[in-house]
Structures are given as structure tokens and as C-alpha cells.
Design a protein around this nucleic acid. Structure first.
Length: 955
RNA sequence: GCCCAGAUGGUGGAAUUGGUAGACACGAGGGACUUAAAAUCCCUUGGCCAGUGAUGGCCGUACGGGUUCGAUUCCCGUUCCGGGCACCA
């Protein structure tokens, strides 16, 4: 009896031995080069792992094991993102305390992860909800509170430096409240009264990336705008560095693009527009003199932002955002009623309506502004298509070259002046930034002179015209060059229970940091942790939640006297707080003196390879880059960018199966025959379907409703229909990795997840092909044993074929792992194992290399074989083999010969043939003679080692 | 609307980055072993045409053009699917 591949026994054995021997425990080792592999850690949700979760973990584990075998000291940790909305929502849905569910879920995750055989160093596990971890989240927050962003240095600085600066400038106020307000405008973590995304259903505010199309990402509940006092992080200060950093890291173009869009840098000009003091439409020419400077100007002017400075000559009106403070100032008495009515209308519209419905609305303010370049007097409108939150909340409208301005001008019958040669603006605007400028100015007297110079852009390209206008505006003090970013500050408070408490108390309303050495401030136990629609924070229910300044501890709220005992912040931090610097904590998870020790941080530097989903592009991946840059400014983190290379694993979609019930019966008809009946498709659990064939007995047992089901079969089988859908319980298409491990083993699961296709690509989970991977492992296994179950290796000289197979494999796999092409590596293994089987190879020299090569993919079987052949230690530490070219040399090269691209045949050339010899051989070959008959050779081309082309034409 | 990525057999996907398209796997069909099943092994498998056959020919990488001796690959245009941003001036 040949020895059977008993994966259960093997996998259990090695899980035990790995734990006993601490195979995956690693430390800092200066003698070896470090490599840091990291997965985005999971939210321990209640449903447990499905087959989509391990995809990225398997990919990174393969790479980590590979790097380790290449001699690197590899850090490959895992932990849990346990605070935040998902964990809390699950607790709420199941009516349990989040602490209980979170820890139960973590245990379940751990159990599932352990079955798959990852090389995680579990001694380094972090959980964001444990006090020894979130102590450093609170610590970082306090550092941010005590820092400001120095624009000139482009880095964070201690807030004291800013105080010094204000004092030196003489702008430091005497009043403590004013001092506090002033600093609050500069702190990186600050308390701000801003419009926030308020989600009543979730009972909390949300960050911009947590809201899509006016509804919450989590749950899909409506979100409204509300002015609230909230903690914020000044992420926007880092806009330029976040943008610049993208050029230094190895991320996919699409995710960099997403971040660039999100940061939304636009370079433009701010131009000061004076109000026309002349109420009559005949007020022309009044500004044909340099702008007055100083006194009185502020009241009579506003500033617009534009990226198209070249279009100053085409301005025919100005527009203010309805929320702009200017609206009130400019509105004339006779337009007051109309404006008020319009503002009322705008207010009645939800964010969502405004986003979806783009009909043109607006109202004339009654006021006029003077275009400083042409001196023209243009009406000022108020319209909701201009946003208060971006730029200055005011624009100059150029209908000829902006589609929104165009629509507005058409609607209100305003003039449209084209400025680009050949642009036809009779039907639509010409928005492209290409062309030659005209009408700028139309005539010389339409351009205002400043210090004897007037602007003329005619004949310039648009690009040149933008630059020239910016220069002019700057030179004559009409405005300034300005860069705007779309990226907004992150709202950092949540009116929720399950998050890090803020280490802050309020002393007479002024936020004050709890001393650093008193951290962490632990989350208090409360009975009622549910959020409220009104936004009352659950921490308000905590009784022991006041700060005693003298005794430096948390005390009962009843003791609050506003003298030495003060209320503590009731909000908690959002989910992204804990996930923003966890990669640093893994380096030194047990350090109770620092987030990470300086030596340790210097050794591990940053993450070399980060693997996770692209859905975090505008959330976690922005926040953690920001957070890390801040810590870098502090000197805690050693690299400006936290994640050098990023691989985005694709989503695993569900593949649902359907049965077809004939209407009003309990009879089900197979896929191929369903069109002959009136049927209703019904989702059926994919776990009772194999290769789209329904297990009839299992189906009857699945639900009492189907116990008496009858079937119309085709070829004796019931074939199910299928569709690709989201993997979800309600579609009955969730595949649990435990079942795969149970039936095929972890090694097969690992192989199959990788074999499914490129890691980066989204694809449906389709168990149909899993047998192929299982068969491969059985064949690999069979190479090592003879009929009696004894090791079949011999020490004889391996055959040239076997050596070639082996070295081809080493070459291919080494190259493929390096570029994350795991599906093609596995294909190469399958080819190699088939070849070795056919060669009846039992040479030790060849077969001892295979366990090493396969171990990143299938570590359990690799360990077992490695042990069986007497390998030393764990296969994890076995040296990755090198291939040798000499075994790969072809004795002859098979080449295609083409005649005029139409006729071709294969022939063998000697490997060392020169191009000339190849041509000679090709043209004199008997096969060639047939094709060359009656033909004239026009041209011969020899591509070294590849192909000979002979171009012919009829004689 | 703007930006990014993509489209290859019945299916998942390969293709040394311009050089024999369809590796590998699944599924399907045929065969061997077996009382039978499972397991295992072997053969066929992009389409069409001709031939008893070995084989030969034509078409074929979403569609239409182009560059090239040669294009799945490069260029231009079109269609479709996915992702991001979106009254961002």
C-alpha cells in the first residue's frame, strides 16, 4: 500500500510543533537584513472569516516565508482592529456588550487563522481595544494637540515655538481665552466648530471617507450636515507632503490616483474683486486706476479663486456660495427679499438632493463687482453651484469656458465671451485647456493699466496665458498665487461607546490634557452603551468619569467642583485612530515606556510590503500616512512613508447557485430545462452544490420546506444556475475556510486561493477547481514514496531531464514570487511535478529541493517531506535554492520561420548559430524549398535565438 | 463630465513585455483498472473546412483602422465592464 497523503494528521502535527518550537518567533537581529511584511489587520466581525479574508494573508505569508528562506529577518505580525463602528454595530445587533462580542470574535478568528498555517509571530499580536495599546493612541493624540504645522518647514513643531513666534511678533493676546482660541486654530489635534456629517441612525458623526453619496458607508443610513463642536485632526496641513510622498512609494497607479483625487490639489490664483460703488449700470471706467490699498478696502471687496487665470477677460458675472458670509454684505436692499427667499430654498435642500439634482438655480444680489483686469462692471449672483467650503466660496464666472458657468449664463441670459481661437460656444462651453487666446483684450482700452502696464494675452497658448496672468496679478498686487486642496481635516470625535476615550478634561470649558504619565485613560464600564439619535454620548452614562487634578486620578462625577475636579471628555475616538500607527507598535508591542523603542524603530524602519484591500484608499491609507508623518516629525517613526510597497488584493466575490422552482409547485427543474417551464429562481446554499450539481438529499434536508421536493433532472443530475454576487449570508454563497480545510487541508486551501488568479484581481470564489490543487499535492506526495510506503529516494546521479525540470522550476518560481505572480508559480509546480513523475525521478539531489520551494505555498506538506528526507531544522529556515543556467541550456532552439507572414514552419537551429547561419539553414531547408519555389526573396531577418523571417514575393 | 484600470476558449486564467496565442487548472467527451463506486492513469478538447488517416488549409485575443517582416502586446478611433473623483471653479 502506497503511503497516503494524510493532510489532517500532517497539519495537526506541524501546528503543534510550530507552537512548541516557537518556529515563528523572531527578534531584532542586526546581523541580518530586515524585511517587514504586513497585512491590514481585520475587524473581528461576528460572522468569522470567510474565504475572502485569508487571500491577502496567504499572499503575504508566501512572500514572508520566501524572504525568510532568502536570509532576511522577516517581521510578519497579526492583530485585530477591534475598536470602532463595525465591532460595535455587531454588538448592538446581537444585544451584547461590545467587549464580550469583540473578544469572542477575536478568539474565533484566531482559531480559524491558526488552521491555515500562517507564519505570524503571535507574541507580537496587538488589539486596538486593550489599554496597553490605546495608551499610545492617546499619547499620539496629545502630541498632536501640543503641536502645530509649520508651513515654512513643512513639518510639525511643538506648540511652544508658535507661542514664541506670536510673542516675537507682538500678536500674543493677554487674555487666556484668546490665547487658547488662537492656538486652537493651529494645533494639529484641535477642537473645532465645523459642519460635520451627522448620521442620526448611527448616532454619530462620520469622517468624509465614511460617507458616500449622502449615506453612511456602514449601514447605508442617511447623513445630514450639522454644525458641531468636535475634535479634528489637521490632516489638510499635510496635503502637500501626502501628495509628494506618493512619488516615493511603490503603490499601484490606481490607488495613487485615488489619493491624488482625494487630496485634490489645484493651483490657481486668488484675485481681489472690488464692489462697484456706483449703483447705476453706467459706472464704467471707475476702476481705471490702481486699486486703493489699505483702509476701507476690506469692506468693499471680496476674493475669488480660479485655476483659469487666463480667462479674466471673459468674466461676465461673479457668483457667491449661498453659505458665504459675503452674501449678507453685498445684497442690496431692493434684492433682499429675493435673496432671502433663495437662501431659504437652499437650506431646505438636503446634501443628497444637492448632490444629485444639478438644475440651475440662483439669484441676483443687486451688487456689482469690478473686474480688475478689464475694469468691467459685472453682476454678483448667489448660487448653490458654488461651494462655501472650497477656495474662497466665491468665483468669477467665465461662461464661454466653464460648463457650469455656461449653464448659469444661458439660464439667466448673461453674456458669453469666447476667448479661445476657433472655439464655438453657441451650444456649449469650451472647457479644454488647449488653444490660442483671443479677445484678451478685445481692444486696448479694455485692459486696465497698472503702473503703466496692461495685460495682453492675445496669441499666447492657454498655459502661457495662465502663467502671464498670475505674474501680472502678483506684480500689481491684485491678488496672489494660491494652491488649494480638497482634502479636509478629519473629524476625530465619535458619539459612541466602543472607542478610545480622549485623555482630555474640561477646565472651565477649556480642554486640558490629562498628564502623560497618567495614561492610559481606560474606557469606563457603562450599562447603557447604545448610541442615541440626538447625539448624547454614551460615556455620559459613566458615573466614575471626572478628573481629579490634585490626586491625578479618575473619580466620581459627583465630585466635580470645577476647582480641582473637572468633567472628562465624553466623546470617543473613531475607528481609524487605533489603526493609524499599529504597524509601529508591532515592532515593539510590549514596550511600556514608548510607542516603539528608538533602537527597535531604527532596525525595522517601515513596512516593506503592505497587503490589503483598496477600499481603504481614502481612509486608513491617508490617515496612517498622515499619522506616521506626524510621528516622523517627532522622530518616533524613522521613515516619512509608512508603507513602501503596497499590494491591493482583490475582493473575493460570491458565486451564488440557484435552483428553479416551477411556479406554485414543489418541483424543481434543472438549469438546462428551465426554459420550458414558468420558474422562480431560488438561492440555494453553495455548500450543498458541487461543480454546479445539486446534492439532492442535502437539499431536502436543508430546509423543511424542501423535504418533499421533487426534481426534473437532466442526465440524472440536477444542474444549478449561478451568478456572481457579493458574498453574503442572504445569498447563501458564503464559503467558510474551515470547511475547505476540513475537506482538503490548509495547504490545498492556500494553493487554491492563489491559483484562482492574480492576487490584485477581484474574482468570484468558485470551488469548482479546487480538486486540481488537491491532486497536485497528492502527486507531489507520491514522488517520495514507493509502493510499500517507504521513502523512495536514491543517491544516484539525477538525470539531465530531472535537473532541467528542477532548475527551470527554481528560476520560474523565484521570479514569480518576487512579482507576486503566485498563480503562475503554482502552474510551474504542477508542470514540474508531472514531469518528474514521468521521468520516474527519485534522485535525492532533486527531490530535496522541492519541499523548500513549495514551503511558502504549502508549508505543512513541505515540513513533513523535509523531515522525512532528513532535512535539518524547519523547512522555513532552509536556504532558498539557486538555479544554475548550465542545466537550462537548450541543445537546439526551436524556431519559427516565417515567409511573408503567411507561410511558416518550425525547424531546429543549433543554439549557437549566428543569424547568418540561421538564414542559410532556413533558406536551404527542404521545407523551405517548397515555399520558396517560384518566389523571390525580398528580405531576410534573423532575430537572435528566435526566428528567421523570409519575405518573399512572386517571381 | 474628468481621471485610472481592463476586455483572450464552455470556465478561472497563461504568453519570456513585439516573435509558434490559449501554458496550467477546471469542466466536458472517450478509454484503462475495478463486481461496483471512489481514487488513480492515458487520450481528445478555440472555431470552421478538406481527408479513412498521418495531416493540411482558413479564421481567431471586444470592434474599426494604423505602424511593422511579424501585433493579445505599440499608436488612433469606437463599444462595453470595473474603480476613483464629481457643481472642487
Amino acid at each position: 500500500m502506497a503511503k497516503e497523503y494524510n493532510f489532517r494528521e500532517i497539519e495537526q502535527k506541524w501546528h503543534r510543533l510550530w507552537t512548541e518550537r516557537q518556529t515563528y518567533k523572531i527578534g531584532e537581529d542586526e546581523s541580518r537584513e530586515k524585511f517587514y511584511v504586513l497585512n491590514m489587520f481585520p475587524y473581528p466581525s461576528g460572522a468569522g472569516l470567510h474565504v475572502g479574508h485569508p487571500l491577502g494573508y496567504i499572499a503575504s505569508d508566501i512572500y514572508a516565508r520566501f524572504k525568510r528562506q532568502q536570509g532576511f529577518n522577516v517581521l510578519n505580525p497579526m492583530g485585530y482592529d477591534a475598536y470602532g463602528l463595525p465591532a460595535e454595530q455587531y454588538a448592538i445587533q446581537t444585544g451584547q456588550h461590545p467587549e464580550k462580542t469583540t473578544f469572542a470574535n477575536i478568539d474565533r478568528y484566531r482559531e480559524q487563522l491558526d488552521k491555515i498555517g500562517f507564519s505570524f509571530d503571535w507574541d507580537r499580536e496587538v488589539r486596538t481595544c486593550t489599554p496597553d495599546y490605546y495608551r499610545w493612541t492617546q499619547w499620539a493624540f496629545q502630541k498632536m494637540y501640543n503641536s502645530y504645522f509649520d508651513e515654512a518647514l513643512q513639518k510639525a513643531q511643538p506648540i511652544e515655538k508658535l507661542v514664541e513666534k506670536f510673542k516675537a511678533e507682538g500678536t500674543w493676546p493677554a487674555d487666556e481665552k484668546a490665547q487658547n482660541d488662537l492656538l486652537m486654530n493651529h494645533r494639529i489635534a484641535f477642537l473645532g466648530e465645523t459642519m460635520v456629517n451627522w448620521c442620526p441612525k448611527l448616532g454619530t458623526v462620520l469622517a468624509n471617507d465614511e460617507v458616500v453619496e449622502g449615506v453612511s458607508v456602514r449601514g447605508g443610513y442617511p447623513v445630514e450636515q450639522k454644525k458641531m463642536r468636535q475634535w479634528c485632526l489637521r490632516v489638510s496641513a499635510y496635503s502637500q507632503r501626502l501628495l509628494d510622498g506618493l512619488d516615493t512609494i511603490d503603490w499601484s497607479e490606481s490607488i495613487k490616483e485615488t489619493q491624488k483625487n482625494w487630496i485634490g490639489r489645484s493651483e490657481g490664483a486668488e484675485v481681489k474683486i472690488c464692489l462697484s460703488s456706483n449703483p447705476s449700470p453706467e459706472g464704467k471706467g471707475e476702476m481705471k486706476k490702481p486699486l486703493p490699498s489699505g483702509g476701507g478696502l476690506e469692506e468693499a471687496s471680496f476674493t475669488i479663486f480660479t485655476t483659469r487665470a487666463d480667462t479674466m477677460f471673459g468674466v461676465t458675472f461673479f457668483v457667491l456660495a449661498p453659505e458665504s458670509e459675503l452674501v449678507d454684505k453685498v445684497t442690496t436692499p431692493d434684492q433682499r427679499a429675493a435673496v432671502d427667499e433663495y437662501l431659504k430654498y437652499v437650506k431646505s435642500r438636503t446634501e443628497r438632493e444637492r448632490m444629485i439634482d444639478h438644475t440651475v438655480t440662483g439669484v441676483f444680489s443687486g451688487a456689482y463687482g469690478i473686474n480688475p483686469i478689464t475694469g468691467d462692471r459685472c453682476p454678483i449672483y448667489i448660487a448653490e453651484y458654488v461651494l462655501a467650503g472650497y477656495g474662497t466660496g466665491a468665483i468669477m464666472a467665465v461662461p464661454a469656458h466653464d460648463s457650469r458657468d455656461y449653464a448659469f449664463a444661458k439660464h439667466f441670459g448673461l453674456p458669453i465671451v469666447p476667448l479661445v481661437e476657433g472655439a464655438d460656444v453657441s451650444e456649449e462651453s469650451y472647457d479644454a485647456k488647449e488653444g490660442i487666446v483671443i479677445n484678451s483684450p478685445v481692444s486696448e482700452d479694455k485692459s486696465v493699466k497698472y503702473d503703466g502696464e496692461s495685460l495682453c494675452l492675445n496669441g499666447l497658448s492657454i498655459k502661457e496665458a495662465i502663467a502671464e496672468t498670475k505674474r501680472f496679478v502678483k506684480a500689481h498686487n491684485l491678488g496672489r498665487v494660491k494652491v488649494n486642496y480638497r482634502l479636509r481635516d478629519a473629524i476625530f470625535s465619535r458619539q459612541r461607546y466602543w472607542g478610545e476615550p480622549f485623555p482630555v478634561y474640561y477646565k472651565n470649558g477649556i480642554p486640558t490634557m490629562i498628564p502623560e504619565d497618567c495614561l492610559p485613560i481606560e474606557l469606563p464600564q457603562v450599562e447603557k452603551f447604545l448610541p442615541t439619535e440626538t447625539g448624547e454620548p454614551p460615556l455620559g452614562n459613566a458615573q466614575i468619569w471626572a478628573w481629579d487634578e490634585v490626586n491625578r486620578k479618575i473619580v466620581d462625577k459627583k465630585l466635580i467642583d470645577e476647582k480641582t475636579v473637572f468633567p472628562i471628555e465624553l466623546y470617543t475616538m473613531p475607528g481609524f485612530a487605533g489603526s493609524s500607527a499599529y504597524f509601529l507598535r508591532y515592532m515593539d508591542p510590549k514596550n511600556d515606556k514608548a510607542l516603539v523603542g528608538d533602537d527597535v524603530a531604527s532596525y525595522w524602519q517601515n513596512v516593506d510590503l503592505y497587503v490589503g484591500g483598496s477600499e481603504h484608499a481614502t481612509g486608513h491609507l491617508i490617515y496612517s500616512r498622515f499619522w506616521n508623518k506626524f510621528l516622523f516629525d517627532l522622530g518616533v517613526s524613522k521613515k516619512d512613508e509608512p508603507f513602501q510597497k503596497l499590494v491591493n488584493q482583490g475582493m473575493i466575490q460570491g458565486r451564488s447557485n440557484f435552483v428553479y422552482r416551477i411556479k406554485d409547485t414543489n418541483t424543481f427543474v434543472s438549469l438546462g430545462l428551465k426554459d420550458q417551464y414558468d420558474v422562480t429562481p431560488i438561492h440555494v446554499d453553495v455548500n450543498i452544490v458541487k461543480n454546479d450539481v445539486l446534492d439532492l438529499e442535502a437539499f431536502k434536508a436543508w430546509s423543511p420546506e424542501y423535504a418533499t421536493a421533487e426534481f426534473i433532472l437532466e442526465d440524472g443530475k440536477y444542474i444549478c444556475g449561478w451568478a456572481i454576487e457579493k458574498m453574503s449570508k442572504s445569498m447563501y454563497n458564503v464559503v467558510n475556510p474551515d470547511m475547505i480545510v476540513e475537506n482538503y487541508g490548509a495547504d490545498t486551501l492556500r494553493l487554491y486561493e492563489m491559483f484562482l488568479g492574480p492576487v490584485e484581481q477581484s474574482k468570484p470564489w468558485d470551488t469548482n477547481g479546487i480538486d486540481g490543487c488537491f491532486r497536485f499535492l497528492k502527486k507531489l506526495w507520491a514522488l517520495y514514496w514507493d509502493k510499500d510506503g517507504n521513502l523512495a529516494l536514491t543517491d544516484g546521479e539525477p538525470s539531465a531531464d530531472s535537473l532541467k525540470t528542477l532548475h527551470k522550476l527554481i528560476k520560474k518560481v523565484t521570479a514569480d514570487i518576487e512579482v507576486f505572480s503566485f498563480n503562475t508559480s503554482i502552474s510551474a509546480f504542477m508542470v514540474a511535478v508531472n514531469e518528474l513523475g514521468q521521468q520516474k525521478c527519485n534522485s535525492r539531489a532533486v527531490l530535496q529541493a522541492l519541499p523548500v520551494l513549495i514551503s511558502p505555498f504549502a508549508p505543512h506538506i513541505a515540513e513533513e517531506l523535509w523531515e522525512a528526507i532528513g532535512g535539518e531544522g524547519s523547512v522555513c529556515d532552509a536556504k532558498w535554492p539557486q538555479y544554475e543556467e548550465k542545466y537550462l541550456v537548450e541543445t537546439s532552439v526551436k524556431l519559427g520561420v516565417q515567409f511573408n507572414g503567411k507561410v511558416r514552419f518550425d525547424m531546429l537551429f543549433p543554439a549557437d548559430a549566428t543569424p547568418e547561419q540561421m538564414i542559410e539553414l532556413a533558406t536551404s531547408a527542404p521545407e523551405a524549398a517548397r515555399h520558396l519555389e517560384g518566389m523571390q526573396i525580398v528580405k531576410t531577418i534573423a532575430i537572435p535565438k528566435r526566428i528567421v523571417n523570409i519575405v518573399v514575393k512572386p517571381n
